[in-house]
Write a protein that binds this DNA or RNA. Structure first.
Lengths: 171, 171
DNA sequence: GGGGCTTGGTTCAAGTTTGAAACAAACCTA
DNA sequence: TAGGTTTGTTTCAAACTTGAACCAAGCCCC
């Protein structure tokens, strides 16, 4: 199969997207590092926890929500725990499991950092977009994310085909 | 000033965007690591060089095009040079300067890796979007990138106001 | 033409990410 | 119920990124 190269328009879109996503992540990381002393991912961990029932969540679920690897999460949680932002607890149902629980201090830090963070997201992103574009961005992003998650699932299911999920024998 | 929190729609867009950009970068990095033995950024360096006159470019210009810090580039170029993908040359006009020049081997590696890379970009991104959405993505990205670059420039100009760029005395 | 700032680039230490390997608990299934 | 697989998490080494500090070489300007 001969390569389906990118059209001129696709190239422009791809390059613009690359530049934008790099610059945006950079701006946000810098702001949070300045004002909260942690990179964006770490802030997101606290943020997700803060919205969970009882402000706690299993490691795997947390990793899944944030779309990061478990090992990356382990490292981040270790640091956040050292800093007192959260605590690791044993899971009551599954002795293998480990649960990250936001501490009061973690919640306080989050509350203090949130306004600055939102302001950065707003001024870097939403202030530059029309209302219509916000909707477009959501749809585009959702389409991409959905596709890639399916891919991931498919790949996981396919790897090492020996006696795999014997669902209604699909040759 | 009270915080302008994100609306429900903005939150959805923001989360979808975050997920998509993480997943996309991951997918691309994984593919390139597999097939070309280097992460996306390193591939991009070769790619940019390959399109320059004489396949060479000054470090600072390269960093500027890729929107990365000089120090990050230095590290990457050092590795790529070790691997024989490019060579560092002295700049003829400016003795401080250093120029990265793509080697034939680097070019060959790039050519070999390009089809797989394009296929990944296509299947992860463009295959999921309508033609209209490609245009929207470009506009959205361009708006964000432009805004953030201006911010960067403004910040650089503002820092340490003592006797700065004495353009037509503003304030 | 000698300070003093700016620019181009690298270096260094500290922090983060990656992927593979290790472990242990849970889940089959013969 | 023992043995083999899967699942949840951590560990480890190697690779990468960050930001501040550094070193030259250019630039200015009195």
């Amino acid at each position: 199969m001969t390569t389906r190269w990118l059209t001129a328009e696709e190239q422009r879109a791809w390059r613009a997207y690359m530049a934008a996503s790099l610059l945006l992540e950079d701006a946000i990381d810098r702001q949070l590092q300045q004002d909260a002393g942690m990179p964006h991912l770490y802030y997101s961990i606290l943020s997700v926890l803060s919205e969970c029932p009882e402000r706690r969540l299993r490691m795997t679920d947390l990793a899944e929500r944030l779309k990061i690897t478990r090992s990356r999460l382990t490292y981040a949680v270790t640091r956040l725990e050292k800093d007192g932002m959260l605590r690791r607890e044993a899971c009551r149902y599954d002795k293998r499991g480990s649960v990250a629980a936001l501490t009061d201090e973690g919640f306080a830090v989050l509350e203090r950092a949130a306004p600055g963070h939102v302001e950065t997201v707003r001024s870097s992103l939403f202030d530059r977009l029309s209302e219509e574009q916000v909707g477009q961005l959501e749809e585009i992003s959702a389409a991409i994310a959905q596709g890639l998650q399916e891919d991931g699932a498919r790949a996981a299911a396919d790897e090492v085909p020996w006696r795999r999920r014997s669902s209604t024998a699909c040759s």
